[in-house]
Amino acid sequence: MHNVTILGYEHAYASAITGALDLFALAGVTWKRMQGKTPERIFNVQLASVGKRDVECINHLTIKSQIAIEDVQQTDILIIPTIGGKLDDVLAKNRNLLPFIQYFYAQDSDIASNCSGAFFLAEAGILKDKKATTHWGYAETFNSRYPDVNLMPNQLITQDGNIYCSGGGMAWFDLTLLLIERYCGHDVATNTAKAHVLDISRGNQAAYAQLRSKKYHQDAEILRIQEWLESNYQQSISLDQLARQVNLTNRTFLRRFKLATEQTPFSYLQMLRVEAAKKLLETENLSLESIVAQVGYEDPRSFTRLFSGLTGLSPSQYRKKFFRTLS
């Protein structure tokens, strides 16, 4: 039996706790029952909290802890679930969790965070110079707070030594299946996924992310150009045209645009066009050629390469994944 400890705290995601509890507890059980074989539990999984206090989750569901984290002497896996409440408040109220994370990391336990749970690992100081991921919506905040962490926000799961991180709020099942595979092998992980009708590998989270522009700088002329591009991305646009709008030389304009946005004007324009194409793919049953033309491109092949590079999916794959009919 492998020991799994889920570290509970107030305002965590309930599903990140109960979902992981279920998958670990039923690995080696559900699939064998379905095959008429004798079930065999593989993991001993428990919810632990400071003082064995009940865990009141963000959805107001209260879950009973099975053990005080102070009484856990050994665990193979320590899981830190998603932060559901206001980030700064939850981190400030739960700094007493950090010594336990540090302790089990020093014991060579596998430490695994889901989504914003990675902030606890960074606060504990165990992510310095290591690869990590978190929800794409927290990437800028994470990078600014922990610049010494090698954040990979497009990755759904990262591993660096004995530290595992997963991205989205519901990526707990990707993380759990990966850990089941690590301890029990591919067949057990695959059978667990089949039994619960889950995809065993979802790649990265780039397709789910909104490509966001940096507009919190203080350069008024560059902000004006950004807003103009957001309204006119369909046009054929030249560097001369942009620079003239703010009475700058091309060289000065390029320098100031990159300093303000951390992008070139044309990478910014490409980002806008991909975002526009994503919306059309989600809502309109148009040909790729029509979509490409509407967002200001002429060559579907070059746009497909651009789209795939930014989202991790081809336009057709993106449409298949996200297109919804109204009927």
Rank of each mutant, 00 (worst) to 15 (best):
Q234E: 14
D148Q: 15
R182H: 15
Y164A: 01
L211W: 10
H196Y: 15
A207Q: 14
A220C: 02
E230L: 15
L177Y: 06
V149G: 02
L179A: 05
D148P: 04
T192H: 08
L179V: 09
D174I: 06
I180N: 09
L229I: 05
T134I: 08
F173T: 09
R145A: 02
A207M: 11
R212K: 15
I180K: 01
A189G: 10
N204L: 09
R145C: 04
H186W: 05
F173D: 09
S144E: 10
V197A: 13
L177P: 05
A207C: 09
K130A: 01
L177T: 05
S144A: 12
L151D: 01
I200S: 12
K215E: 11
P147H: 05
D187Q: 14
E140H: 12
N150V: 02
R202W: 08
Y208K: 07
L156M: 14
R244P: 09
K128W: 03
A207K: 13
L179M: 05
L248T: 01
K194C: 10
D219H: 12
N247E: 15
K131H: 08
G161T: 07
M152K: 14
G169D: 00
I200D: 04
Y233A: 10
K130W: 00
T158P: 13
Y233E: 05
I180F: 08
Q155I: 00
N204H: 11
N150C: 07
M152A: 04
H217K: 09
A207E: 14
Q245F: 03
E230G: 12
W172D: 09
S201C: 10
S231R: 13
Q218S: 13
Q226E: 14
E230T: 07
G168W: 11
Y216K: 11
Y164H: 06
Y146H: 11
Q155L: 11
I157D: 00
N162E: 03
D129S: 13
N191L: 13
H186P: 01
V197R: 00
S231Q: 15
E221D: 15
A193N: 04
E140C: 02
S201G: 08
R224M: 12
L175A: 06
L248R: 07
A220V: 10
N154G: 15
A132L: 04
N143P: 01
L179T: 03
P147W: 02
S166N: 05
V149L: 03
I200R: 11
C165P: 13
Q234T: 06
L239F: 05
G167Y: 10
S166V: 10
R224Y: 14
R145I: 00
G168M: 07
L179G: 01
V149H: 01
A139H: 10
S201K: 10
S213E: 13
C184V: 00
N191F: 10
A132C: 04
I225V: 14
D148H: 07
K194A: 14
N150W: 02
N154C: 06
L211D: 10
R244H: 14
T158Y: 03
G161F: 02
A207L: 09
K214C: 07
Q241V: 00
A206K: 08
G167R: 03
E221M: 07
M170A: 12
I180L: 07
L178S: 07
I163R: 01
L151F: 12
I180Q: 09
Y183D: 06
T134S: 05
R251P: 06
A209G: 09
A139M: 09
L179N: 02
W228G: 08
D148K: 04
L175E: 08
